[in-house]
Design a binder for these strands. Structure first.
Lengths: 193, 193
DNA sequence: GTATATACGGAGCATCACTCCGTTTAACAA
DNA sequence: TTGTTAAACGGAGTGATGCTCCGTATATAC
């Protein structure tokens, strides 16, 4: 059952290279707003055959998720750094702003999510976990410090933040998103001042 | 320029009937999670030809928007009713909860939105307006009553709420969404208690 | 150098969005 | 009722796209 693969061989270098090239092309395309780019085209730009693309990513969603996930990982990694640099509530505020800035700057996440079929499912479950862990640690710290109400569900905050990414549009967008962060934090305090 | 159509004839009854049947089938399908249902299939279930579907809705997005818009209209209509029945802040809270309940019960909005290509654009601009007006009037009343800070942008709240709809999943979802509503309202008060 | 697991490429298939146009029918007038 | 006509219908056909299959090529190990 739990048979461990003993790696008979080192992974082939061309395989890894191609995989990264595909991810790179896809990320660039999604960022540029070409959410509907045909997969043939992604393969062509990456200089590989369509078959190669499908071996690395079994379907369109898998490719999108891979791009998406790599970005989220980087976001999650920022959490412990911020926690070390600031007091709990400020660390959370900073992270939430980072989230917003991040989405604003590189429009990777929002368009990709919108392009997904029935985003309800697997993708969130998988990729969401790292973000969940990140926001979870920050909120826990704020609660432990007595700054936040104990009944705050970190996921609530994450959901609200994700919403901003979906309605991303218009000029005053960034400022508005930052105000929302403040609203959320104020609303979560144990005894609002 | 502004030539008014003088309706030479009454609209044909079969046309209207078919249009409504198509909308009905599409709404049901989307609600059932069949976001990717082929349009041929929608036409078949509605008992019309594919050509008829395309005459009423020039493309897939147009059909989705039509369903989506009808639902949003009903949500917007609830705002003035609630405003008449409750004090400002409670009217807003009630409306936001309605929004959440609505999405939870009939999963029309979230899946449809996710299925859209680049939700950034036209659809929101069009359909969003009615919701915007609804939440706007409720928030304005709360500000006028001195209950809310004057710098609250109603759109911020709408965005956060929309986020919930996108991360809709899991069992504790509804309760969590209601907590979020409370957080948002507490965070928006002029002097939080 | 040889063997072989691994990866590659792209022709081909199935499906789906959307178009086109000949046929049918509801509305109106006489 | 019947004739006229604008309006609506239906579905075969077209092009594009997601995905599969399998023969070929090559990196790794010995």
């Amino acid at each position: 059952m739990t048979d461990v693969k003993k790696p008979r061989r080192r992974p082939r270098s061309d395989g890894q290279r191609n995989r990264e090239q595909l991810l790179d092309v896809a990320k660039t395309a999604f960022t540029m707003g070409e959410v509907d780019i045909p997969l043939d085209e992604v393969a062509r730009r990456a200089g590989v055959g369509i078959g190669t693309l499908y071996r690395h990513f079994p379907n369109r969603d898998a490719l999108i998720e891979a791009v998406y996930r790599a970005e989220l990982d980087r976001l999650a990694e920022a959490a412990p750094v911020l926690a070390a640099q600031h007091p709990p509530v400020e660390a959370l505020r900073a992270w939430m702003r980072l989230f917003v800035d991040y989405i604003a700057a590189k429009q990777v996440i929002a368009p990709a999510l919108n392009g997904l079929v029935g985003g309800t499912g697997a993708l969130y479950a998988h990729s969401g976990d790292v973000l969940k862990a990140a926001v979870n640690s920050l909120v826990s710290a704020a609660i432990a410090a007595g700054e936040f109400r104990a009944d705050i569900d970190p996921l609530d905050l994450l959901r609200a933040l994700a919403g901003v990414s979906n309605f991303s549009a218009g000029p005053g967008w960034e400022g508005s998103a930052k105000r929302l962060v403040d609203i959320l934090i104020t609303g979560s305090r144990s005894s609002a001042s």
